[in-house]
Design a protein around this nucleic acid. Structure first.
Lengths: 227, 227
DNA sequence: CTATCGATTAATCATTTGATTAAAATCACT
DNA sequence: AGTGATTTTAATCAAATGATTAATCGATAG
């Protein structure tokens, strides 16, 4: 018999289970993290349920036992990825940095850290963009509300700075695109850059990315600076 | 009976057929361009041979009749994409721009034009990166030799400018990554940028990209300029 | 101890999907 | 029109793949 809840009676998201044998992750947890690893890097179509079962070291049937279907498991994993990816924004809102410069520093710093810790995350975003299925902005999801709020405040800050003549007149899309591109692109093209732009080790690459936490805000400012 | 050549007796790559009924593309051509459209945007695994047949408006069996297998068709299409993507480099070499500034202007200009004309091309690169199967640099392929030559000359130019104190001391990977990111990323994130960074029409987006042909070289120079 | 219930397994099912086949249609050439 | 080659079609095959089932295992309560 199949469990009605996606998580069965497990509640491993909180790890508050009655007996909580923590040393060994629960089966459902193993499946989910295997799925996250594979789906994130290669997308939905390229991964077979058997790949996930093998990666998790479990019997194939358990995948359906705990998560009903490949699609449901995928949706779950992607939802978590979205929250991981946009989560930094919440921190930003909560920290309430007011000026453009503060926002800039904060976003760059947090996203580079996030990408260093989750190197496959960019591919997940690309899979989203590629599939053309951007999640609709859910007015009720506090996460999306925060994103919207941050974006509006960010855009307003740019506009105000331009009106005051502090920065060059530049379309906000350029600023947003440049920020995102400078932050994310090196992680997307990581293998290409490491192999082809001089032979760079993993460690060197990561050091360069850390260096970018300081450089990118300077670059963005210099790009925007009125001549 | 199956044809031994991938193209059978057709030689539609050159369109120099004896009777050249040009008004209607040959069946093989229809299949190939349907495959290119779909594979480029969504990758190998997400596309079924039946999708290609439908898109091309042909019987499924013709795909195998002309191209033997899904994989062979994919490889063919991707090879053409690689040449399309790297082709601008050959022009660059042939034009022999010597200085870093000339190279910079040339590359930015050509790649933005290329991406404006082939909006799905970035996804093909991403699929390559995602699959982890970067094509080995074929020492015999003149294209790869040109790329290598351009890269080396580009890197050398950066080094020399730094030694002369003309530009800030900066790791070449930053320069390469910034260039590529600023050029390519807006096309990758196009749907996201258009929908979310203010509501931008297709026409506006393209005008902004054309504007970037002028701006990106300035940005790169300002980034590299010694303070 | 054993009855019970959730967890796990091996086997199997049903559908999808890449590929093939044999016949029919179309074309080139006389 | 006739003939042979090429192209196209509908039907089908075989393998891959998502999902299910029935049996078994293992822990826990009574």
């Amino acid at each position: 018999m199949q469990p009605s809840s996606l998580y069965k009676q497990h509640d491993f998201t909180l790890g508050k289970g009655k007996k909580a044998t923590v040393q060994d992750p629960s089966t459902a947890e193993k499946i989910k993290s295997a799925a996250k690893k594979l789906f994130t890097k290669k997308g939905y179509a390229a991964i077979r349920t058997r790949d996930i079962a093998e990666e998790a070291g479990i019997n194939l049937a358990l995948l359906n036992y705990y998560f009903r279907s490949k699609k449901k498991l995928f949706d779950l994993v992607m939802k978590e990825n979205i929250h991981l990816f946009l989560g930094a924004m919440i921190e930003n809102i909560n920290n309430n940095p007011r000026t453009f410069d503060e926002q800039l520093d904060f976003i760059v710093d947090h996203y580079i850290d996030l990408l260093l810790q989750n190197p496959d995350l960019p591919f997940f975003v690309l899979n989203l963009l590629q599939s053309g299925k951007l999640p609709a902005e859910d007015k009720d999801d506090p996460l999306f509300r925060n994103i919207q709020q941050l974006r509006n405040s960010f855009l307003k800050n740019i506009q105000q700075a331009m009106e005051k003549g502090k920065v060059k007149n530049i379309h906000p899309l350029h600023v947003i695109a440049n920020m995102m591109g400078l932050i994310i692109f090196p992680f997307i093209a990581r293998s290409l850059l490491m192999a082809r732009a001089g032979h760079i080790s993993r460690k060197e690459f990561e050091e360069l990315m850390i260096e970018r936490k300081k450089l990118i805000p300077e670059w963005i400012r210099s790009i925007m600076r009125a001549p």
